[in-house]
Design a protein around this nucleic acid. Structure first.
Lengths: 233, 233
DNA sequence: AACGTAAGGATCGTTGAACAATTCGACAAG
DNA sequence: CTTGTCGAATTGTTCAACGATCCTTACGTT
């Protein structure tokens, strides 16, 4: 009898993990999810204006609800809200890109200087493997997403939900820029090997080397990106 | 003539600083400003529910507009939006406090390891001076705000607008917790001296010492806060 | 050619009302 | 003590309307 009660209690206690999913569904948030996907996959181009009337009609929600979604995305810096003029898909300046890399150096740098947990190492290893597999299959779009997962996993070493969230937003913002890379292969290829190398250094606990290696890594990525980006403006 | 043009150009260039204030005025944002102030000064207590009807009537705005303001503050983590149950002033858990300090270690730690700019040093010095003056005058509320300004200024050494913004939000969140300190003097007093010491180390360029000093600083602050906080729950 | 003004159309900002959906407490029944 | 049920209160969402603001175009002035 006691055993039975214990099992039930355990099962009930486990439920607490799923509590987060409960509140997670208002129309506005689902609309925001849809728009976020469209933006980060490049369906909406940076600078494009998103008409309240057109989109609310297309999605079958009211203007008020759509505006709530716009606010959410504005706070994530994916949309630019200009008073009385509407919302526009964010256009990142070269200065914005530089700032995003400054933040990356701080977030990823701090992560790399810690001894990563077993779980973090697993996540990182998966991302490295996936990137290599995708590269072998010539699927450079998949390489890109695996690469993003790699850096997201890196940050989890900080063991901070807020830093994870900040990194998620940062990478979403960066995706606004990745689309300017005409040839994704040229951009992603060099980093597949580097991800592997960085992982090896972490696994061996050679944290200082990992830190300096990461700095060079980020410097070069930033340069590549800005070089491809600046001329367009 | 050239001189005149130069002066005009300078004046015009200065205007660029105020550009941020231009777009800044929709009713929803002003409402958010009001509520943010009320929350951070403790007028609304953590856990308290904010009634849409009562507040929209009190402020003379429509429910829809108020809800937009709620969304903004929800994204800043000052309000907790529960579906169909309303918005509540955020209640931070001890785990939240711990996470906030993890983030502080990353943001402030990275700042301290850089050579601060002249401008950053000025801001830091001002905050230190203000805190000492306020302490001498026994105004512990003012010490608290000066202390917050000190840490905000510290982060500016990173030279990153996004990190500045992240720190601003983090400190707003922390203010939700500061109110539990029954005696603000006990909490703030030890840090007035430490701020001065940290500033001296930075000014002398002894960055490594500053970094370890900061770590101890943050550890103790976190302990004090959590000790005063945990029993209440 | 540069600038100020005016008119018109399009779009956003905000409101107020309405109704559906959901929560929560109270109370009754097993 | 647990489980159903009911009703009041509150939120979620929609809709229509009107004023405010911006953009464009056109016209006239200097």
């Amino acid at each position: 009898m006691d055993d039975y009660l214990l099992i039930v209690d355990d099962a009930v206690a486990d439920l607490a993990q799923d509590r987060g999913r409960l509140g997670r569904s208002s129309t506005a948030e689902r609309v925001a999810d849809i728009l976020r996907d469209r933006i980060s996959e490049g369906f909406f181009e940076p600078g494009q204006r998103l008409s309240e009337e057109a989109i609310s009609e297309a999605l079958g929600v009211s203007r008020n609800t759509l505006r709530e979604a716009f606010r959410l995305l504005g706070h994530e810096r994916l949309l630019d809200h200009r008073l009385n003029r509407g919302v526009f898909v964010r256009v990142l300046s070269a200065e914005d890109v530089a700032d995003l890399y400054r933040v990356r150096r701080v977030l990823e740098g701090a992560a790399v200087r810690r001894l990563p947990s077993k779980r973090a190492l697993e996540l990182i290893a998966e991302a490295v493997d996936d990137a290599e597999r995708a590269a072998a299959a010539d699927d450079w779009r998949a390489v890109g997403t695996a690469n993003i997962r790699f850096h997201q996993a890196l940050v989890t070493a900080n063991q901070s939900p807020r830093l994870d969230e900040a990194m998620r937003q940062l990478l979403a913002e960066l995706r606004l820029v990745f689309h300017v890379m005409a040839n994704p292969r040229d951009f992603h290829e060099p980093f597949v090997q580097r991800n592997r190398r960085l992982f090896d250094l972490l696994q061996d606990g050679r944290l200082d080397e990992a830190a300096t290696f990461l700095d060079g890594y980020l410097d070069e990525a930033e340069q590549l990106l800005i070089r491809a980006y600046e001329p367009n403006r």
